[in-house]
């Protein structure tokens, strides 16, 4: 410690800091200078945008900031009821995302809405609705398939975000429901490159699964089309690469992939065991060797 201090005598004395404080200050200072690289990859505020109260400062900066309220919130009629229903005292307690009529989005975003209707989320939602109408148990609110407002913040979502920021937000948005897929994506090369190392050419969630269609890529032909968007020369075997390697990500209906994944995990485990054993052996051997030579030295040999 004293030897180290010798190199920074002026600095330490002038500032009146201990060495520890000096390190702390330099770490904090460096994290200020490198804000992009030291912050967590997804520290965006993810609080719900569909609250009853709107933060107008954030709203005016958002993509919809130039729209007037009644453009989206004009009088709405759903199943013969007028919304907002001034006579219904429970209206204000209802989940706004579930009660809002998202067909209104289609007036400005027809293409996105069409794709959404074609996609997996809409199909699941339709199935859940059917089940409910047929008298089955309604799905709990957190298990309901998403509509526009579940993924997009209509009040605060900003336009013209960079590709990387969009990608980081996808991790948050998609990861809210697809937790294990999020984790395995972040362990995958695409996630590491795209989210952590901020490489634009990497693939984010929607680059493979489609922005509004949200396709499942379990079918190999579909997966290959997705791969070929970037990997032009990909062959059919290329689509066999396991991207989401989490144990919950592998479909039970795909025994071949299950076998592949089991093999990968087995070899990973063997590799780890071999690594630890080899290192432990040589570390121990070196340690005993040093003791032996010290012993020789002390004996004067």
């Amino acid at each position: 410690m004293d030897r180290f201090r010798m190199f920074f005598p002026g600095l330490i004395k002038v500032k009146g800091m201990t060495l520890f404080q000096f390190f702390m200050v330099s770490i904090i200072a460096s994290s200020l200078f490198l804000p992009i690289y030291t912050r967590p990859a997804w520290c965006e505020d993810s609080s719900s945008s569909s609250d009853w109260f709107i933060d107008m400062n954030r709203f005016s900066k958002s993509a919809h900031g130039s729209l007037k309220c009644d453009r989206c919130h004009g009088e709405m009629t759903l199943k013969g009821n007028v919304h907002p229903n001034r006579k219904d005292p429970t209206a204000i307690r209802k989940d706004s995302v579930r009660t809002y009529d998202y067909k209104r989005c289609a007036t400005c975003h027809p293409e996105s809405y069409k794709r959404y209707l074609m996609g997996e989320h809409a199909k699941v939602l339709a199935k859940q609705e059917e089940g409910r109408l047929a008298g089955g148990k309604p799905a709990p609110p957190e298990r309901l398939a998403p509509t526009c407002g579940d993924c997009h913040s209509s009040h605060y979502a900003q336009a013209k975000l960079s590709r990387i920021t969009m990608g980081e937000q996808m991790i948050l948005t998609c990861g809210k429901c697809h937790v294990s897929q999020k984790m395995s994506y972040l362990k995958n090369l695409h996630g590491q490159l795209g989210v952590f190392l901020e490489k634009k050419a990497s693939a984010y969630c929607t680059d493979c699964h489609g922005a509004h269609t949200c396709e499942s890529l379990k079918a190999k032909e579909k997966a290959l089309t997705a791969c070929r968007r970037c990997h032009r020369n990909a062959s059919t075997r290329f689509a066999d690469i396991v991207i989401h390697t989490g144990s919950e990500d592998i479909s039970k209906k795909d025994p071949k992939k299950q076998v592949h994944m089991a093999l990968i995990l087995t070899i990973k485990r063997i590799g780890q065991i071999v690594t630890v054993l080899v290192l432990a052996f040589f570390a121990l051997q070196t340690f005993v060797w040093i003791l032996r030579e010290l012993h020789n030295r002390l004996r004067g040999r």
Partner: peptide, 17 residues
């Protein structure tokens, strides 16, 4: 892309591990 023509795709995963 080149090597997955000759070996199954999951070999890339194995290679990574």
């Amino acid at each position: 892309e080149f090597f997955s023509r000759f070996v199954p795709g999951y070999f890339i995963n194995l290679a990574q591990v």
